[in-house]
Amino acid sequence: MYFFAGLKEAAGQEKWEIDREEISIGELRREAAAAFPEAAEVIGRSMMAVNEEFASDSELVTSSDNAAFLPPVSGG
């Protein structure tokens, strides 16, 4: 799983691996928030992408998928 933008800085790393064959996005979000408490707020507000497609918390991710947290951004 990959972290992007400010979430990468908050987590202190770009890539995180967990030892699960299959997990829901919601479970992945909870595990990431527990593993990176300093980034938990942003993880909770981030969109998830699986294989470059947006995914909901009920969708499953397998060990062969590419998953990424995409934090909210603002511009002007």
Rank of each mutant, 00 (worst) to 15 (best):
R30A: 15
R45V: 01
P37L: 04
R20G: 11
A10Y: 06
K15N: 12
A32C: 08
E31N: 10
G26S: 13
D19Q: 12
I25C: 12
A34W: 04
D57C: 05
A40T: 05
D19V: 10
I43Y: 10
A49K: 10
I43G: 04
I23P: 12
K15I: 13
I18T: 10
E41D: 14
A35Y: 04
R29T: 02
E31L: 15
A32S: 08
A10V: 09
G12Y: 10
E14D: 13
V61Q: 05
S56I: 00
E27S: 14
G12D: 11
G12W: 11
S63K: 10
I25D: 00
K15C: 11
A32D: 05
L28D: 06
D57H: 04
I25N: 04
I23N: 10
A34Y: 05
N51M: 01
R20P: 09
L60Y: 05
S63H: 06
D19G: 10
S46K: 07
E38L: 03
S56Q: 03
T62C: 06
E41G: 09
S46A: 09
I23A: 11
A49H: 04
E22G: 10
I25Y: 05
S46C: 07
P37E: 07
V50A: 04
I18D: 11
D19F: 05
E14V: 07
A55M: 01
